[in-house]
């Protein structure tokens, strides 16, 4: 249960820059009204951020990940139930992974 000084300092440094990242953008942009282009860019950022997040690992994941992705999106559209969509997607990816491994294709 000890906390060493060097570890404490590293953690505090990490925490400080993380809070600065979370609060800093808002603090700056509240003081300076951004031009219309920046406002439009900020409106487009959420979707683009998540697409940029998922694209590389999704393509690298191969058929199990693609099948899982189709199931997640279909269920989210049909039921609007996030838990059902995530669980079914993981189940589909896992099932296909196991199936391919059983057939001797990767895994």
């Amino acid at each position: 249960m000890e906390i060493r000084l060097d570890v404490l300092l590293a953690i505090l440094g990490m925490a400080l820059v993380t809070y600065a990242s979370r609060a800093g953008g808002y603090a700056v942009l509240r003081a300076v009204r951004p031009p219309p282009f920046v406002q439009a860019l900020l409106r487009h950022l959420p979707g683009c951020l998540f697409v940029a997040y998922v694209t590389p690992p999704l393509l690298a994941g191969g058929p199990p990940a693609w099948a899982g992705a189709v199931v997640v999106i279909a269920l989210q559209l049909a039921t609007r139930n996030m838990a059902a969509a995530i669980l079914a997607g993981v189940g589909a990816a896992w099932g296909m992974h196991a199936g391919l491994a059983a057939l001797g294709w990767g895994g």
Partner: peptide, 30 residues
């Protein structure tokens, strides 16, 4: 011993992506 400077810089580089999020949520946060 813990890499104080390296860990701090690496954290900043990864988390700087969150800076525009607060700005985009201004209609609520304001």
């Amino acid at each position: 011993p813990a890499p104080i400077l390296a860990a701090t810089i690496a954290t900043l580089v990864v988390n700087i992506r969150m800076a525009p999020m607060g700005a985009a949520l201004a209609p609520w946060l304001d």
